[in-house]
Design a protein around this nucleic acid. Structure first.
Ligand SMILES: [Mn+2]
Ligand SMILES: [Mn+2]
Ligand SMILES: [Zn+2]
Ligand SMILES: [Zn+2]
Lengths: 138, 138
DNA sequence: ATAATAATGAGAAGCTTTTGCATCACTAAC
DNA sequence: GTTAGTGATGCAAAAGCTTCTCATTATTAT
């Protein structure tokens, strides 16, 4: 029940919040822009405002329910935060996204931060390329 | 001589272009937003338009003269491309930026891309944290 | 059910970046 | 050195994308 998740996160269980959370949990498309979320909700007959979508996503991010990414081109997308950190491989042609984690890279990042005297709070690694499907001649 | 670099890149050596390139080469601040570049130029008495700065930076990027980064928060910054790839550690308090390269991380990234069937074109790794100076209590 | 309070939707506003266009400046040819 | 041609520039307007304002509505605790 999404209402419970929201309350645990200290957020009132309003209809727009429940709907956004449900969408992020059930959508085929795991990484979505605010506009995407908005359109999906409109299409499923919800009466929601774009401003609310932005507000809710920002609140979810603050509450740790979702993560926000800034992919190449500067467009920002959201995804449900399911605990396990991961990084991304993005196809620059079709936008396909693959997720991965690499413990050795993670380890090395921590060391680099320490070496530079930083108290690491976050990190992100984006690999851009052309996916198998987009490589075909023609 | 910046005019030569520009011509080699297939760009007319116009005054705004030369000035932007000089600034990127000589500025104390290595990573700059378009607005930064614009203000620096105005302050040094140049008569340049913001639109031109954006146009020139985009052209420089296309020509491989500069790289563009989208740091957390979505703001995009530019830096002179001096051939050697590197990644970034960014202080989320003061904006201080440290650069680094790690061959093992680079190697692993290539493998991950290959494993996922991607033809890697680019990648970026941002480590966010609080720098030494900003860690001091108060 | 009610009252108190917080959240919402719609539109306005704010930023950053891009575009249209008349004018101006490089460049190369004289 | 001039000149002609093309391409670049500055300005203002426009186009995203995101946030804010505010009157209205929904949620929660009583
Ligand atoms: Mn992901
Ligand atoms: Mn750098
Ligand atoms: Zn693809
Ligand atoms: Zn700092």
């Amino acid at each position: 029940m999404e209402s419970q998740d929201l309350k645990k996160a200290g957020l009132k269980a309003t209809l727009p919040r429940v709907r956004v959370l449900q969408l992020l949990e059930n959508s085929e498309q795991r990484h979505m822009s605010a506009e995407d979320v908005y359109k999906f909700l409109l299409d499923s007959g919800e009466d929601v405002g774009l401003a609310t979508v932005y507000r809710v996503l920002t609140q979810f991010e603050a509450a740790g329910l979702v993560s926000r990414h800034h992919f190449e081109g500067g467009l920002s997308v959201f995804e449900l935060n399911e605990g396990r950190h991961h990084d991304h491989v993005v196809c620059v042609k079709c936008g396909k996204i693959e997720e991965f984690t690499d413990d050795i890279i993670e380890e090395r990042q921590r060391n680099i931060a320490k070496l530079k005297g930083f108290d690491m709070t976050d990190h992100c690694l984006y690999i851009y390329g052309i996916c198998h499907g987009c490589q075909k001649p023609r």
